Amino acid sequence: MTADISYTTEDIAKLLKISKLTVYDLIKKGDLPAYRVGKQMRVDASDLEAYKARAKSGMVSTSRTDSLEMAPSIPSPGAAPTPKRALVITGQDISLDILAKHIERKVPQSRPLRSYAGSLDSLIAMYRGETDIVSTHLLDGDTGEYNIPYVRKILIGSSYVVINLLSRSAGLYVQQGNPKKLQGWSDLQQKGLRLINREKGAGARVLLDEQLRLHGISYRDMIGYEQEESNHMGVAGKVAIGEGDFGVGIEKAAYMVGGVDFIPLIQERVDLVMLKKPENQEWLKGVVDVLRSEAFHNELRPIQGYDLSQTGRILFET
C-alpha cells in the first residue's frame, strides 16, 4: 500500500528527474515533508504524491535541477524573481550550523542547507557533486597531517580550496574516575576493553583506527568495536552510563553530557573544503569573509574547547 512506501532523497531525485540538492531544498522549504531514519532522510509516498499534485496546480515555488531556486513570484510591474542557490554544508559540528546562519545573512543569493555526515563520507559526497561545503577532520597517521592528504586523494582532478574552520581537543571518553587507568593510545592494548565506536567514515573513527594501526593494536581484542553511535554525544553518553569503558571524541561533548571524564590526546584540525568553479566564486568569497569576521568568531568563542587562532586561514589551494 502507498501508505507503507517511503523514498530516500536519491529515489526522489530519480523519480522527479531533479538533483539531490533540489530535493534537499524542497525539504528545507517545507514543500516536501521528510523525516530521518538513522542517517537517511525519507519521504512517504503519500507526501510525494501530495507535492506533485500541488506542483501541477502551481501551489509550490519553482525549483530547478541546477540547484537554483526561484523565489515565489509577487506580482509587481517590471520586477523579476531573485535567484537563490542552495548551498549544502556537510558535517556534524555545531559550528557549521552557526556558519550556515551567517552565510544566509552575508550571502543573500544563497540558501544554506545542512547535511549531517562524517568527514570521509562528506568528501566522497563532494566528489560526487552532492555538496558544496565540506567539513573534515581526518588524521593521516603516516604524516601526522590533517585532512589535506585525504582531500588530494579523493578530489582528484578538481580545483579546490582548504580553509581552517577551527581546532579542537580530541581524545578518550572514560568513565568517571577512569577505572581502567587509560592515559594514552598505547593503553588501548588492555584485553577486554569495551568500546563505544563511531560509524565508518567519521573523523573520530578514522582517528581511532589510525592510532590502533600505529600502535600495533588489534581491534579484535576489544569488545564492541562494531557498536556504533552517529555523534560524539552518543558515544560520551554511552560511556557515562557504563555501557562502555571508553570512546573517542571531542572535549566539548564530554562537558555537554556530564558524568564522563575526558583524556585529551590530540589537537585536531577541522577544515572546510570548497570547490573552485566559476559559478562558485561569488558565494565562496562570501564564505571566506564570514570565516574571518568578528561576528562569527564572537559566536564561537564561548564554546568549550574551540581554538580559533587559524580560523579563516587558507591552508591549501589548487
Rank of each mutant, 00 (worst) to 15 (best):
S159L: 02
D209Y: 01
K200Y: 12
V239F: 13
S57I: 12
S57Q: 14
D142V: 11
F246S: 03
G258L: 11
Y51W: 09
A125H: 04
K14C: 10
I27M: 10
S19H: 05
G234D: 05
K252C: 10
V37N: 09
R292W: 12
G144K: 06
E299F: 09
L212Y: 03
S73V: 09
K29V: 13
Q304C: 15
I133Q: 07
V257P: 02
R213M: 00
L113G: 02
R36A: 04
A236R: 01
Q176V: 13
F246R: 11
G171I: 14
E130M: 07
S293A: 12
F262K: 06
F246L: 08
S167M: 10
S73C: 15
R64G: 08
E282Y: 02
M256T: 15
K17P: 09
I98W: 11
A253Q: 08
D271M: 05
I27T: 12
R194D: 09
S6K: 08
D121F: 08
K52D: 04
I103A: 12
V288H: 02
I223S: 13
T143F: 06
A55Q: 10
L87K: 03
E229F: 09
V239I: 07
K14S: 12
H297M: 13
L87Q: 06
I217K: 01
N280L: 10
A79F: 06
G177R: 01
A50D: 09
L123P: 00
L87F: 08
V270F: 08
L155I: 02
L155D: 00
A253L: 03
I94A: 13
L139K: 02
K101Y: 14
P75M: 15
E229L: 13
E229T: 07
G312A: 09
A204V: 05
K252E: 15
L193F: 03
D11K: 08
S122D: 01
R105G: 04
L21R: 14
D47V: 01
Q304I: 13
A100Q: 07
T8D: 04
Y127R: 14
K106I: 02
G78R: 07
Y116G: 02
L214C: 12
V287Y: 00
M126I: 03
V239E: 11
S158K: 14
L193P: 06
G242Y: 10
R85F: 03
G58Q: 05
G242F: 04
K180G: 00
Y160S: 04
I89T: 06
L172Y: 07
A100R: 07
P264T: 11
T22H: 03
K153G: 10
Q109M: 13
V273C: 03
R269E: 14
T65P: 12
N164S: 13
D245I: 05
P108C: 01
P112C: 00
V174W: 07
G312I: 11
D121M: 11
R269A: 14
E104C: 07
V88F: 10
R42M: 06
R220I: 09
Q189T: 15
I103E: 09
H137K: 12
I156E: 15
Y35H: 15
R105K: 12
N147H: 00
A3W: 15
A236I: 05
